[in-house]
Design a protein around this nucleic acid. Structure first.
Length: 421
DNA sequence: TCTGGGGTCCTAGGACCC
DNA sequence: TCTGGGGTCCTAGGACCC
């Protein structure tokens, strides 16, 4: 049996852990640059603030509803996630960390699984302050369904066991197809045109039809909805096949120099991630674009992919990225976003060297890069930076309402005054 | 005025191999 | 008029996830 553990309103819940006066009040967390709403407490959802809503469009509602607003604080959320995942791993035979706030657990067969889930939920709540919902079922797709029920249906106590055949059939029949794991906007529309609104109707379609219309993914989904388990648990430590760093600018950017600094910084970040997972990349994509929402302004968007001998060397990667940017940059536009994606990633320990094209500087470069990594690890990210990145972060994010990094910075620890006990 | 960031997988079609 | 069979690799585009 597989359990899916999902943290409730995760980012909003993280903020509440360190300010319990927010309990019972509407809380939202914003995306980078304080642009969109990316997490909402139940109270904020009840006010009618949608997921992904641009803040300025809901300004009135937010002000009127006395909503507590936070800029995103990923240092905090990442660390809280790590704590939750550590606890979960202690109570499962195997765990797949599926996202920052979700994990699939292999619970094995025996015992009272519902009770086990209740105990685990209570423990995570007590040790981390994060409320979670747990759904248990024979496969991942039904575990997702079970978690959905655990979260929405009153009286479940935050846990739901979907095990016997009759019960599975009944729940699947009533489950809206658009809420299924693997069904997005497009599929919802296509299914509706076929008259399919709930998961039961979907499972009634023939295998051949499902395969033809919805590919192997659709077929896997059907089998899992019927109680099978065909989507295996993946190891959580799989290395990434692509590594991306991209940001919107707080204010639009025109100059090539400024874009170069942003692209250089993103490349440095990508290269750090690349080395951390012990990989090499042998191509990269650099992309820039203007603000598509500003229909009154001239639009430009372009990307370029460049191949190169496999490396994890920041210096050569930045050089490549700057050359690539030069090929796609056009003056006269107001740019909103720039990004870098490392591609064709392979393990560093299986690197096949090129007999005829060895870069003599590579070895020296790597010694330097590793020394920089060490110093940045010891004294904090960005302590040592490349000149290419610019002296100051001119493209700094807008983050007006960020909470403190309570768990990852000594200077930002939570202080508890005497009057509060 | 103001609209996020980071990923994975599948398919179709073209180029190429013998 | 009529032109084989079997395969791999790559890419772009589309769809999905959180």
């Amino acid at each position: 049996m597989i359990a899916l553990t999902d943290c409730n309103n995760f980012y909003a819940s993280c903020e509440r852990v360190f300010d319990p006066s927010l309990n019972g009040k509407p809380v939202v967390v914003l995306s980078n640059n304080d642009g969109c709403v990316i997490a909402r407490s139940n109270e904020a959802k009840a006010l009618g603030i949608p997921m992904g809503a641009p803040v300025f469009k809901y300004r009135r509602l937010i002000d009127a509803g006395k909503v507590h607003v936070f800029s995103s604080n990923f240092a905090l959320y990442g660390d809280m996630s790590r704590r939750v995942m550590n606890l979960l791993s202690e109570h499962a035979r195997n765990i797949e960390i599926y996202s920052i706030d979700e994990a699939f657990l292999d619970l094995g067969e025996g015992g009272d699984l519902y009770e086990a889930a209740r105990t685990l939920r209570e423990k995570v709540g007590r040790c981390t302050g994060i409320p979670v919902s747990i759904g248990i079922a024979p496969g991942k797709t039904l575990a997702k369904v079970a978690t959905h029920i655990a979260k929405k249906r009153p009286g479940t106590g935050g846990c739901f066991l979907l095990a016997d055949a009759e019960q599975i059939k009944k729940e699947v029949e009533n489950f809206p197809v658009r809420e299924l794991w693997g069904v997005g906007r497009r599929l919802t529309v296509r299914l509706r045109k076929m008259g399919i609104e709930n998961a039961g109707q979907f499972t009634a379609l023939s295998d051949a039809f499902v395969r033809r219309e919805f590919t192997v993914n659709g077929l896997r989904m059907k089998k899992e909805l019927l109680g099978g388990s065909v989507i295996p648990l993946e190891p959580s430590d799989r290395s990434k096949k692509s590594i991306c760093t991209a940001r919107s600018f707080g204010e639009m950017v025109q100059s090539r120099e400024h874009l170069e600094q942003a692209v250089s910084s993103h490349t440095v970040t990508c290269a750090e991630k690349l080395r951390r997972q012990g990989s090499l990349a042998s191509s990269m994509m650099v992309f820039i674009h203007t603000n598509a929402f500003r229909e009154d302004l001239p639009q430009y968007r372009r990307n370029i992919v460049v191949p190169f001998p496999a490396t994890q060397n920041t210096l050569s990667l930045v050089k490549t990225a700057k050359t690539a940017l030069g090929k796609i940059y056009r003056s006269g536009y107001q740019y909103k976003k720039a990004g870098v994606i490392l591609l064709d990633i392979s393990p560093a320990d299986r690197y096949q060297r090129d007999l005829f094209r060895e870069d003599p500087r590579e070895e020296d470069d790597m010694r330097l890069v590793k020394a920089v990594d060490m110093l940045n690890a010891k004294y904090g990210r960005g302590t040592l930076r490349l000149g290419d990145q610019g002296l100051r972060d001119k493209h700094a994010l807008r983050q007006r309402r960020r909470s403190r990094s309570y768990t990852t910075q000594w200077e930002e620890l939570l202080e508890i005054g005497e009057e509060e006990g």
